[in-house]
Nucleic acid binder design. Sequence first.
DNA 1: TGATTTTATTTCACCAGTGAAATATGCACC
DNA 2: GGTGCATATTTCACTGGTGAAATAAAATCA
Lengths: 174, 174
Amino acid sequence: MLLSDKIKCMDEGIAGVRRAIPEVPADVGLCRIMLLIAERLQAELEYKLRPYKLNDSEFRALIAIFAHPGGASTPGEVCQFTSLGVTNMTRIANALVKRGLITRGPSDEDRRRVVMKITPAGKRFVQKMLPSMLPRLKLLFDGFTNNERSTLNRLLRKLANNLSQLEHAAGDSP
Amino acid sequence: MLLSDKIKCMDEGIAGVRRAIPEVPADVGLCRIMLLIAERLQAELEYKLRPYKLNDSEFRALIAIFAHPGGASTPGEVCQFTSLGVTNMTRIANALVKRGLITRGPSDEDRRRVVMKITPAGKRFVQKMLPSMLPRLKLLFDGFTNNERSTLNRLLRKLANNLSQLEHAAGDSP
DNA sequence: TGATTTTATTTCACCAGTGAAATATGCACC
DNA sequence: GGTGCATATTTCACTGGTGAAATAAAATCA
């Protein structure tokens, strides 16, 4: 089912709810649309990654290590930069090690830590893979002016700030 | 970790990647920010639903049935309106039936079908629950002018259209 | 009418993410 | 210099979503 059709269904559904309970604001539609887009965006990303037999988590982790100074990092750091849960890192790293894209070993300075280092093969892999993903990415924002891009960026960050405020206040409704 | 901090980390990470591979456009940041926001938005929703012991899937299904004319619908229809996978519907419906919010039985007209009908208790439940979610929703768009809301809406739908185009063209890179 | 195709739902096996607890090392303080 | 607290990673049990196949009831049509 096409995303545009899903949105149409969603619009109808919300219209129905608002008829039944008028206090419900139109903003719920804005939320749902973002959730639907994100879902589809994620699918698009996974689609582009499929030929490389990577999922998004592995991709993010690999890129984080790639982009980190020295091409090496620790599970904790990688999780910070990728917003992945620490608990998943072990499995993800296992997968990357198995494919020879990174190595993993104990740190010399702090032996609680583990260092994950990108291999030369991993570096080549990233340098080949990333550019191949760009054409479809370009299509995504087809028809967007620079102005629209920056407006979208601004509004999304504004929304993100509000969301962060909510996080602060999370404990206020027991 | 606060959403705003996650975004900060993400920004840094992408800056690093773009230093290494300059062809990578800034648009990837826009994508990632949307994914992060959606993740957090989903969490916010689940947070609001927790007191009612519902997850978002169950919530969406229940609302879809509630909003449907006659307060009754079929698994397939509910899936259309909620963008849930058909395969999940059985489990979700089981949960809702067990809680007495809906009933489920074979259809009289077409016995391949199953009808899911909201119970009086389910109706009361929705009417009590929905309004209680509004205050936090309001905070979400705090500081947004109507103009900004509609701009965001427009840009998101534009993006959704592009994504739908991509869906059409999905099979073009074997 | 009986064979074939289509539609609707369910079942099952599998994959990915999560929180709580286990493990192991380092750090600080008395 | 040992005891206790903090940090880093891993393990495990559980939850939720997915695709492929099973089941069952129409609908189509020769």
